[in-house]
């Protein structure tokens, strides 16, 4: 069994001690309770303070739990909250692009579709909310893999199944695609998942600039692309939409 890191164990013990009631504790109380030298205890407390996990009362110099701990517990963004914030923007995206719009999040090694707006024509369409898409070949999946480290490692570990002749499968090529995605700020899928279908997607960030999802449009390759390239106005519409949703979630302009 690997040895544990002693200073982390001590930091955890301090947090537990401070969580044990409404009291604020002074340095010597904390040090003696945990059987530590004052200097050692102070070093750990200062680090926790800088990370926001403990706060120090300016008048008494006593320590208490910090606000960052609360935020840790609440940082998870509910997918239904995400949908409800994205609703007006994705409606406008579908309308201006003339294609169907999708919102996806990482879920069990794939992309879970949490919102879908129909293509604005009168054709018969089926709501695809709840469907799963692959991480490595779709535009939504590539965006998540490029920006979310968890998605990245899941996509790398998984078998990257070639759905069409154009699917990028090797780890090296896949990494290059993700580099390109990060450099451009969007990802494309031109007949890499479904023959005849192309899509473009961009990342949504929350107020702490964490990647929380991806938004994109999908349609027939003949409409989405021109001369084998994505139509630039579609790319702009998707990125505008992603920025608008991010702004609604409190992310600054970027």
């Amino acid at each position: 069994m690997a040895r544990n890191i002693q200073s982390l164990e001590r930091a955890a013990a301090m947090l537990r001690l401070l969580a044990g009631g409404e009291r604020r504790l002074g340095l010597s109380d904390i040090a003696s309770s945990l059987g530590l030298a004052k200097g050692t205890a102070h070093g750990i407390l200062r680090t926790l303070h800088e990370e926001g996990f403990v706060e120090q009362d300016p008048a008494s110099g006593r320590y208490q739990l910090g606000a960052e701990l609360l935020r840790l517990g609440n940082s998870y963004l509910d997918v239904h909250e995400l949908r409800s914030r994205a609703l007006v923007w994705t409606d406008d995206l579908a309308r201006s692009s003339g294609e169907s719009a999708y919102l996806g999040v990482l879920h069990q090694h794939g992309v879970l579709i949490v919102h879908h707006v129909f293509r604005p024509d009168d054709s018969r369409q089926v709501l695809e909310v709840g469907a799963m898409q692959p991480l490595h070949s779709t535009a939504l999946g590539k965006v998540l893999s490029a920006y979310d480290p968890v998605a990245h490692s899941e996509a790398l570990e998984a078998e990257r199944k070639p759905y069409t002749a154009r699917t990028v499968s090797s780890a090296e090529d896949f990494e290059a695609v993700l580099d390109l995605t990060r450099a451009r700020g969007y990802a494309a899928d031109i007949e890499e998942t479904w023959e005849g279908v192309a899509s473009v997607a961009a990342p949504i960030h929350d107020r702490r600039h964490m990647p929380v999802g991806a938004v994109g449009v999908t349609g027939a390759v003949e409409r989405v692309c021109r001369a084998g390239e994505l139509r630039p106005e579609l790319v702009a519409a998707v990125r505008d939409c992603a920025r608008a949703v991010s702004r609604d979630l409190g992310a600054g302009r970027f």
Binding site: V88, D91, D92, E233
Partner: peptide
């Protein structure tokens, strides 16, 4: 209120 606007279609 910010109106939803898009750059792709004026």
């Amino acid at each position: 209120t910010d109106a939803p606007t898009t750059a792709s279609h004026s």
